[in-house]
Simulated assay, not measured.
Amino acid sequence: MQFNVDKRFIEILNTSGARITWDQFRKANDLRRAERNSDPVAVAKKSKARLQEIKDLAAIGVPISLGTANDYPSDVQP
């Protein structure tokens, strides 16, 4: 499930009995994002989807920029 989380959402949680501050939420969210970004399966899935997107755009003639070497981790180059 995906949804937008904002400070009002945190206020609603607090009125429902879940005591959490915006900073606590951001810290937990940052930790979870780091977990997702370090999951090899998720990284591979995202890369595969991006490659397909590039192929689809190229097929209809959209110019593609793969960025520069600085846009990639040192062990992955375009």
Rank of each mutant, 00 (worst) to 15 (best):
V62E: 13
A44T: 04
K7I: 15
Q2K: 11
V76S: 12
I20M: 15
N4D: 14
D39H: 00
F9E: 02
D23V: 09
F3R: 03
R33C: 12
A58D: 11
N4I: 12
V62G: 14
K46N: 09
A49D: 14
I60F: 09
M1W: 14
T68I: 04
R19W: 04
D30V: 06
A49F: 10
A42C: 12
P40W: 07
T15F: 08
R26D: 12
R36G: 01
Q77K: 08
I54S: 00
N37H: 15
I54C: 03
V41N: 12
S74M: 03
E53T: 02
I60A: 06
I54E: 00
E53F: 04
D30Y: 12
F25A: 00
L66H: 06
N4E: 15
L57D: 05
R36S: 02
N14D: 08
L13D: 02
F3A: 10
I60W: 04
D75C: 12
L51T: 15
R26H: 09
A42N: 09
R50L: 14
N70H: 14
N70C: 08
L31A: 13
D30E: 11
D75P: 02
Q2V: 11
K27A: 12
K46H: 15
N14M: 06
G61H: 02
W22G: 01
Q2D: 10
P73W: 06
K55V: 13
E35H: 14
T15N: 05
Q2P: 01
V41C: 11
P78V: 07
P78I: 14
F25K: 01
A59I: 03
A49T: 07
V41H: 10
I20N: 10
P63V: 11
N29I: 01
P63K: 05
Q24G: 06
G67W: 00
E35F: 09
P63D: 07
N14H: 14
D75R: 07
V62Y: 11
I10H: 00
D75A: 14
Q52G: 03
G17I: 01
I20T: 11
I10G: 01
V41D: 13
A69S: 14
I54F: 07
L51M: 15
N29A: 09
I60M: 04
L31F: 15
T15D: 06
V5L: 05
K7S: 15
G67I: 04
V43F: 13
W22D: 02
R8A: 08
Y72L: 00
A44G: 02
A42V: 10
D71A: 05
N37G: 06
N14Y: 07
L57H: 09
Q52P: 01
R19P: 00
G61A: 04
R8M: 10
K27F: 08
A49S: 15
A28D: 03
K7T: 12
N70F: 15
D6T: 02
N14S: 06
T68E: 02
T15H: 06
G67P: 00
P78K: 05
Q24D: 05
E35Q: 13
I54R: 00
D6W: 04
A69N: 12
Q52N: 07
D39I: 00
I54H: 00
L31V: 08
D30G: 15
D6Y: 05
A34C: 07
A28S: 08
I20P: 01
I10Q: 01
F3G: 05
V5S: 07
A28P: 01
N29M: 07
D6C: 04
R26P: 03
R50A: 07
F9G: 04
L66D: 03
K48W: 10
F9T: 04
